[in-house]
Amino acid sequence: MDIPELCRIKLTDEEQERLEAEMKQILDWAGEIGVPEAKPTAFEAIVPRGDRARKSAYDIRFPKTKDGKIVI
């Protein structure tokens, strides 16, 4: 799939050409990172959050609203 389409960015032809060239240059420069394989790492545990609801204290103002619902 087209990359700009996949990340929902519309590009002009000129932009697309320039960005593709820059991307290729950067990926070639990165190339084979080529360091040795790292050793596997260990895990640590954290406790899950309980299950207590807190009343919403946020005034999240959605810019487009209608009867409380957001208009897309």
């Binding site: 990359i3 700009p4 996949l6 990340c7 929902r8 960015i9 519309k10 590009l11 932009e15 960005l19 820059e22 991307m23 950067i26 990926l27």
Partner: peptide, 18 residues
Amino acid sequence: RELLGQEVKRRILLGTFI
């Protein structure tokens, strides 16, 4: 998203690609 600058756009495209 069209309002994003060139450096930001390039990083998003690269990140999506890889």
